[in-house]
Amino acid sequence: MIQAQNVGFAYETDEGLRRVLHEVTLSIQSGEMIAVLGQNGCGKSTFARLCNALLPMQEGKLTVAGFDTSDKKMTFELRRVCGMVFQNPDNQFVSSVVQEEVAFGPENYEVPRQDIGAIVKAALHQVALDGFEHRAPYTLSGGQKQRLAIAGVLALSPKVIIFDEATAMLDPMCRREVLAMMKKLQAQGHTIVMITHYVEEAVLADRVALMQDGKILAFGTAREILCDKEKMDAAKLLMPHAARVYYDLLAEGITLPMCPLTEEELLEAICRFN
């Protein structure tokens, strides 16, 4: 679904070029849920923005849902199949009424007017915002706003949805709401890419890409990456709490039967140790 080959990118600044991506090569399958982890400024968001041509391609080749992202003639179509949800939904809203907000995308893509009503209704239903049609977006809670942003993306029936730190500002309950929504969308066949700083969220992904200084440092299953102390240290990231406990006990000569990824697994490992 997403194929990147030697993708490179540098921003122009007064100080000259600032390189943020360096020969990024990776392949994401259709229907996968991928987490991208890495330090501030490592190139996560730049990569995401290249995927739907918010930034123009400079080096290498990147195809998303069969579209070559450097093909300017197809940019409009590309953005339809590759939707993005950002950290602050308020920045994304253009309308003062929920249903108009969701209709904005389809209207721009010249979807026949008589079809738009049904599309909006279905999209709001998918994110469990039925009955909110006439509300103003600013009266919604943080989690509801983020779900509205997702509905706006869904109204265009995208194949890929990229969440760029979409849960960073949410309270724990709203975060779980949005994460559950991602899982549901994946189950419906969407390919999900989430950029996050919460390793506990990355646990939910099928595969995790570790980025550092504009390069892919490692790409593997959540367990392969998140429980690998060396790799996580190299990327200057912290492992999930449960895995950290495993290594901290190991340093004291206490070896749990397995390296746990989640709190439940940690409880189980401690039970089995006893």
């Binding site: 330090q39 501030n40 950290q87 700083h197 990231l237």
Partner: peptide
């Protein structure tokens, strides 16, 4: 007000 959201673990610590 919510200063550490969006900071990577090292920057957060």
């Amino acid at each position: 007000d919510e200063p550490i959201a969006g900071l990577d673990p090292q920057a957060r610590d």
